[in-house]
Design a protein around this nucleic acid. Structure first.
Length: 393
DNA sequence: CTGATCTGCCTGAGCCAAGA
DNA sequence: TCTTGGCTCAGGCAGATCAG
């Protein structure tokens, strides 16, 4: 696919001289239609939170009968309209409605002026860096920056001639199709993964044994002592370091003398790290190479004994059984957390047949790897689409 | 002294109200 | 009615404090 795009960009570059500097207000129309909520057949509404950043698709909505809805929700939108979140425009909330409904006064409802622009192309103009930059730069208000229509309408960009608009819109939507397809694949794989995890670990099974974790693993075995060399330099793994389940971000390098007091737990190779705070968020990660990583005391560092494939332990923490276990035990209202003791006492499931351990662990790893691959495909497809958008507008 | 828990600060985001 | 701006709530974090 990337080849097609390269070629298209090449082709367009030659022609860009024919593109016309155009004001956004000339190709887009702000819809201000209102809804009488007591007297309407419309049932769905869209709040800011229903729109995702950099996601053209509406995936969530509310139902009028659901719950109380603030009086600001009076704006009518129709299928095909573009919704634009006018508050905090750096969030890049641009979405296309695929049904008629109601939204609030702070969500702009926009229609394409189809005499000037192909309606399928307009949303991508709004996704561009230039458009977003304009919105951010012209936003008013300190607590809640927002953009006014007149400042959006002033925004100028290069508009291709109609025949090219059609081609570009087709290309961009084809890329969108690819991304949506990949997302669907991801959903399926993740579903398969969690189904397997729960089948293996959440149900009692014959020929499996249930063993306290501390019988087969060391938990928080090593801590940095206060007499540690102040110049000792390490990478610090705190809760912010686990950006999503199983994913470690860039870790800050620091010296012991500058480190926060909670930088204590020594991480080894093949360590399982569990964030004990808000365990339902599953900020759990597997560290292959743990040399010179120090974790915060908000985590449990688990090292499974060598004769057991530690991956089969790691994946159990993503089971419903473990989530429920945590929910039963965690304490604190604003800062719910489990303790190292809870981790020690958790009973892990292991097949009595040792061969089965590696076999199941491998299946889990395979699904996990596929997830990673599809995720990276999605992010590179998105990056490609984004870079095309920014080369165009 | 070490680890667990509390408290308060900061930020993000939605909602609402006053002013033009 | 539109524009502008602040209030409020919740999440997240980290230093302070507490308890064994």
């Amino acid at each position: 696919m990337s080849e097609i795009i390269e070629n298209t960009i090449e082709e367009l570059r030659l022609d860009k001289s024919k593109w016309k500097l155009t004001k956004f207000g000339d190709v887009a129309i702000q819809e201000k239609g209102k809804v009488d909520r007591d007297n309407t057949t419309l049932t769905r509404y869209i709040k800011g939170e229903h729109m995702g950043s950099e996601d053209l698709h509406i995936r969530k909505w509310g139902d009028l009968t659901d719950e109380y809805l603030g009086p600001a929700f009076i704006r009518k939108f129709e299928k095909g309209d573009i919704l634009y979140g006018s508050r905090r425009t750096y969030l890049r909330k641009v979405a296309i409605a695929d049904f008629d409904g109601i939204t609030s006064n702070t969500t702009l409802v926009i229609k394409a002026n189809e005499e000037k622009i192909d309606k399928r192309l307009l949303p991508f103009v709004m996704m561009s860096e230039g458009f977003t930059e304009n919105s951010i730069k012209n936003s008013k208000g300190s607590v809640n920056p927002y953009i006014n229509w007149k400042d959006i309408a002033k925004y100028e960009f290069l508009l291709p001639p109609k025949d090219q608009q059609v081609k570009l819109a087709e290309l961009l939507w084809a890329m969108d199709d690819v991304i949506e397809g990949e997302k669907e694949v991801l959903n399926k794989i993740e579903h398969a993964y969690f189904t397997l995890v729960d089948n293996l670990f959440s149900k009692k099974k014959e020929n499996w044994e249930y063993i306290r974790l501390d019988k087969i693993a060391k938990i928080n075995a090593r801590s940095l002592k206060s007499n540690t060399n102040p110049d000792y330099e390490f990478r610090y793994l705190d809760l912010a370091g686990i950006i999503e389940p199983k994913v470690i971000g860039e870790l800050k390098k620091m010296k012991f003398s500058d480190a926060p007091s909670r930088a204590k737990r020594v991480v080894n190779d093949n360590s399982i790290i569990l964030a004990m705070v808000r365990p339902y968020q599953q900020a759990f990660a597997y560290i292959d190479e743990g040399k010179d990583i120090i974790a915060s005391t908000g985590t449990a560092v688990i090292n499974v004994s060598d004769d057991i494939n530690s991956k089969i332990i790691f994946h159990q923490f993503f089971s419903k059984k473990f989530t429920r276990y945590c929910e039963d035990r965690m304490t604190g209202t604003s800062y719910p957390a489990i303790t190292p003791t809870d981790v020690e006492e958790f009973k892990v499931a292991l097949p009595k047949n040792k061969d089965l351990i590696s076999e199941e662990a491998e299946k889990l790893e395979e699904l996990d790897d596929s997830t990673k691959i599809v995720k990276s495909k999605i992010s590179s497809s998105k990056a490609l689409q984004k870079s095309l958008i920014n080369q165009l507008f």
